[in-house]
């Protein structure tokens, strides 16, 4: 089936950002955060993410054993706070190294394509 050729840029940009989503989320969970505060922290740093995507992602990472979570009450209703556990810290370090290598590779490729 032929894919729609209407505005491929938006779709490709979304795919590009989606690839970096897990790393972005992990990077903000060194300190405990609940879903909504995490979303706001990401949005403030230029990485807006839909709630409908963020919450399932948090639960998936929790299920995969890289996050620890607990319900807490801090100036408001009960909220589920997530933070990296030891496995999450190790995963973050690995993904950060991969990301660094990828950025270097891409920079080289893009620089080469500009000449």
């Amino acid at each position: 089936m032929a894919e729609s050729r209407e505005n491929p840029t938006a779709k490709l940009e979304l795919e590009l950002r989606r690839g970096a989503l897990v790393l972005a989320v992990l990077s903000q969970l060194r300190e405990p955060q609940y879903g909504y505060s995490l979303r706001q922290a990401l949005a403030q740093r230029g990485m807006p993410i839909e709630e409908g995507t963020l919450y399932p992602l948090l639960r998936r990472l929790d299920g995969q054993g890289v996050l620890a979570s607990a319900w807490r009450i801090e100036d408001g209703p009960p909220r589920r706070y997530y933070h990296l556990n030891d496995a999450g810290e190790a995963l973050l370090a690995e993904l950060t190294a991969t990301w660094g290598a990828l950025v270097g590779t891409m920079a080289g490729l893009l620089e080469g394509s500009g000449t």
Binding site: Y36, W71, P77, R79
Partner: peptide, 17 residues
């Protein structure tokens, strides 16, 4: 098994939104 946890979290999220 996931219903209650997700439900609580979702309700909190929507209230804050």
């Amino acid at each position: 098994k996931d219903r209650n946890g997700i439900g609580l979290e979702l309700r909190g999220l929507l209230t804050e939104m």
